[in-house]
Computed example of a mutant assay.
Amino acid sequence: MNPPALRSPAILVLEDGRAFRGDSYGAEGETFGEAVFSTGMTGYQETLTDPSYHRQVVVMTAPHVGNTGMNDEDPESSRIWVSGYVVRDPARIPSSWRSRRSLDDALREQGVVGISGVDTRALTRHLRERGAMRVGISTTETDPRALLDRVLASSEMAGTELSSEVSTTEAYVVPAVGDKRFTVAALDLGIKANTPRMLAERGVETHVLPATATLDDVLAVSPDGLFFSNGPGDPAATTAQVELLQGALAAGIPYFGICFGNQLFGRALGFGTYKLTYGHRGINQPVMDRTTGKVEVTAHNHGFAVDAPLDGATRTRFGEATVSHVCLNDDVVEGLELRDADGELRAFSVQYHPEAAAGPHDAAYLFDRFCDLMGGGR
Rank of each mutant, 00 (worst) to 15 (best):
E161S: 12
C371S: 11
A237Q: 12
A299V: 11
G111V: 03
E320H: 13
A193Q: 15
G261S: 07
T212Y: 01
T49D: 02
T314E: 09
F260C: 05
G203N: 04
W81Q: 02
T31D: 06
M157K: 14
S77R: 02
T292R: 13
L147V: 01
G178I: 04
L187Y: 00
N230G: 12
A19S: 14
D50Y: 05
E141F: 01
E320F: 14
S154E: 09
A213I: 00
G117R: 11
P286N: 10
D149H: 12
E170M: 04
F37T: 05
V333Q: 12
R100Y: 08
P51T: 07
D216R: 06
E28G: 09
A158C: 05
L226Q: 04
R181K: 08
C327F: 14
V350C: 13
G233A: 03
G335W: 14
S222R: 15
E76L: 03
T206H: 05
A19C: 10
R55M: 11
Q110T: 02
L226D: 02
E46L: 12
V218H: 00
L152M: 14
E76G: 03
I137L: 09
G203K: 08
T169R: 15
Q351M: 11
A236I: 04
L187H: 10
V59H: 03
D50L: 10
G26F: 09
T49E: 07
L152Q: 13
V82W: 06
Y44Q: 05
H353A: 04
R101C: 14
T239N: 06
G375M: 01
G257C: 05
E337R: 14
E46I: 07
V297Y: 00
H361G: 12
R21D: 06
T31S: 10
A250W: 00
E28F: 10
S99A: 15
S78H: 15
D307I: 00
A236N: 15
G29S: 01
D289L: 00
G225D: 04
S163D: 15
A364W: 13
T169W: 11
D340H: 04
R88Q: 15
G225E: 02
S164D: 15
G247D: 02
S99I: 07
L219E: 05
V58T: 01
P232E: 08
T49S: 03
G33Q: 08
G282V: 15
L215T: 12
H54L: 02
G319A: 06
E243W: 02
T42M: 13
R150I: 06
A250H: 08
P75C: 10
